[in-house]
Design a protein around this nucleic acid. Structure first.
Lengths: 204, 204
DNA sequence: ATAATAGTTGACCGATCAGTCAAGGCGAAT
DNA sequence: ATTCGCCTTGACTGATCGGTCAACTATTAT
């Protein structure tokens, strides 16, 4: 067997990075190659098109984040607390990234998905698939919360989709307005959407 | 005085149309000109860049829709009913458009805004401004609903922003999944976000 | 050591990109 | 009817786009 290369990962990393910070359309294959330290020929050795690279980059991002998601939404954590931890995690990650690039970047799945959905079915289907996987974490937490009588959610799947959409709307707004504080306010909105019985703030 | 031309409007109409259906990045100046029946030189007679045209197109779209919004959110309509009518209106408009282009297009403000926000401050600021204007309709309806004891919303502006973000998240999801039914389900979510009292009593 | 193969390179392609410009056409006020 | 100036035209630019290709390198199993 000949040599092995990490170039494929470098390319997907560079692609997602650039597309997240800018957009799919303004991220050229040349720019991806430059950041990955690759030449154009190498790019097209691994991927047959920019579209295919994008789908691979989104899947790679999912794989890198899956363990984190599993931990955040661990069944050992009280169901409603899972959301709190997840929202905190995303907030912190976006705030951290803002320090280096100056912008709140929102969710790459939504940004890229919204941009290409009417034109690139390959990427669209990939976005859809990852979207569904992430919703499963919400769904499971909602079902557990319902079982414990914390909320009333006879249709956990629908409730999960709704909450996920609301959250992503807030992420998109945070990106457009470049304001991370919008994410802080979402926790209360999430409780409203989930139908958590209103609780007065308890000093901790 | 020499002749007058409707070319400027034709160009903004064509631009918004193409960017809504596809994206900002994939909408070329050439394509805009072709749809508007203009030559490149005319385009740059009216606008000094694609970016400036986009900002103008968004403002023009707002101006065309303002009367509709005023009617939908008329103070003569019961406050919570205003939302119902607005959501129906958007749903019907998107469903109608789907017949001709095959896709649920979501909200152009969000799509374009999300796409260019980190790269084009001119368009970003325009998106921001229109976003704020639209939120005012929500805010006013929420304040009226609060005054009538239909909901509890001590901070109507924050509630309006939250609901607007949630709705746009749903619009984005509908675009990505090309599914108009997601918008139908939003009405109940909106009631949850607004904190409308229904069968489920809310503890004080 | 060498052969087989995974990976790399850089030159190249036609198309399209946003944007420019000088010149001319054409409507309205005089 | 002339003139003023809004608007249109079409040919043009240099850069960049996504993508191709044949030749080359480097690694590793044998």
């Amino acid at each position: 067997m000949p040599r092995v290369s990490d170039m494929k990962n470098r390319l997907t990393d560079a692609a997602l990075d650039l597309m997240w910070e800018n957009s799919y359309g303004t991220t050229s294959v040349d720019a991806i190659c430059e950041r990955a330290g690759a030449k154009k020929g190498s790019f097209y050795y691994f991927f047959k098109s920019k579209s295919e690279l994008t789908a691979a980059a989104l899947e790679a991002e999912w794989n890198k984040n899956k363990a984190n998601m599993d931990a955040l939404f661990s069944p050992t954590v009280p169901p409603l607390e899972r959301f709190d931890r997840y929202f905190d995690y995303v907030h912190d990650r976006l705030a951290e990234r803002q320090k280096t690039c100056g912008s709140i970047l929102g969710c790459p799945i939504l940004s890229i998905g919204s941009e290409v959905s009417t034109q690139d079915q390959g990427v669209r289907v990939t976005v859809d698939r990852i979207w569904d996987r992430k919703i499963k974490y919400f769904e499971s937490a909602i079902r557990d919360a319902h079982a414990q009588g914390l909320i009333v959610a006879p249709d956990p799947e629908a409730k999960a989709r709704a909450l996920f959409a609301c959250y992503h709307g807030t992420l998109a707004q945070a990106r457009i307005q470049n304001d991370v504080e919008l994410l802080r306010d979402f926790k209360q909105v999430a409780m409203d959407v989930l139908g958590v019985k209103h609780t007065q703030a308890v000093s901790s």
